[in-house]
Simulated scan of single mutants.
Amino acid sequence: MKMAFYGSSLLSSYWNGAATYYRGLLKALAQRGYEITFYEPDVYDRQQHRDIDPPEWCSVVVYESTPQALVEVARRAGEADIVVKASGVGYEDEALLLEVLRHAHADALKVFWDVDAPATLAQLRNEPDHPLHRSLPRLDLVLTYGGGDPVVYAYRALGARHCIPIYNALDPRTHYPVPPQARFRCDLAFLGNRLPDRESRVESFFLQPASRSPELAFMLGGAGWDDKPVPGNVAWIGHVGTHDHNAFNVSPRAVLNISRESMASNGFSPATRVFEAAGAGACIISDAWAGIELFLQPNEDILIARDGKDVATILEQLSPARAREIGAAALDRVLRHHTYESRAKLADETFRSLFANPAVEAMA
């Protein structure tokens, strides 16, 4: 089956948190026989910060950020059996969706793949004239990479025929334990770009514990933090490419997961980095959010903090031996239950069920 996938970027993780998700899931779908072409715009200097070469399992078309180029790649939707428009492409998203739907073959399966459902749904609630309102009835399926029942119910209330979460997961061929590296050694590390929906939570869960624990070493990775005031025991190292994620995750005593406010409020939305860190065997400390026990067991595979004070307390009590034990348990659980192969199986079954009978309910 031919799939045309319009997304932010497969080749670059620069200002593109969905890159790991796209790579893991699409590679697993390709192994199931899908012939995939990924279309990504040349925006945000991503092409200057590529961290993988075009893969053998997927064709990649990089197009200029011009209206003419957008229409040209949208026409290619007519060649595919499955047409996917992802959220957050980064250049004229609404226009791209309309053009892709206009050119898709009448018998093609038309999918909106939302990689930031809480933000998209908030936008739809606040903007009654948003083009996606008009497009939802023309789509066969909405997939999300998180959100659980709250997102499913919200999308169906807005007119989506089917909505199914295809959660983040682990690709054990790209994220796995490696020897620790001295450059990433610290007591607690956090990796995430500076975003308005996250910054106050980074202050609470990361910077405040650092201020309370001057004897400990903290490391901050990600873009956009260069002018952010931080305590003296916090080292900011800038953007960390995916080729360094395994070492970044395995070298500190613990790594911190901080959800964006919308993700934490919605729940059921594990970030890609949760599975990356678990795949490396890292000891993860995470902020609390509903549904986390569906993925990792608190106090067994992951440690949960309600606020920055909890983070500081956990660090005080966390021995290196206990941290290694928690990391090993997380690795075991994600390998058994949360790989992209299992996510691709659900996506494949969903696609095939809708092709077989578009009128029936998609598999949940």
Rank of each mutant, 00 (worst) to 15 (best):
Y34P: 11
P137Y: 09
E199Y: 12
I302A: 11
A305D: 10
L132H: 05
L315W: 12
V62I: 14
H133P: 08
S13C: 02
V240Y: 00
Y22S: 09
H337M: 06
A278V: 02
W113K: 05
F205I: 03
A264K: 15
A235T: 13
D244K: 05
E94Y: 00
V152M: 13
S342Y: 08
V360N: 14
R156C: 11
Q31I: 01
E215W: 12
S200A: 15
S319L: 09
K110I: 13
I166R: 08
D114Y: 12
F275R: 14
S342C: 07
G308V: 13
R333N: 11
A95N: 08
Y167A: 10
A19G: 08
G327H: 05
R134H: 03
A95H: 01
V89K: 02
T339F: 14
T144L: 06
P165A: 11
G90Q: 03
A329R: 14
G241E: 14
V142L: 06
P196Y: 12
M1A: 15
E203I: 12
S342N: 09
G17W: 06
A119K: 10
K85Q: 08
P131H: 04
D149K: 15
I285A: 08
R253T: 13
S286G: 04
A330Y: 04
I82K: 01
K27I: 00
D301F: 03
E35Y: 04
Y44C: 02
W15G: 02
G279Y: 01
P358Y: 07
K345H: 12
A210N: 03
T20D: 10
R32M: 11
S265W: 06
V111G: 05
P172K: 10
N249A: 15
D149S: 13
D227C: 05
I314K: 09
S200K: 14
A28W: 13
F5L: 11
N357G: 07
S353C: 10
H245E: 03
A80H: 13
K110L: 13
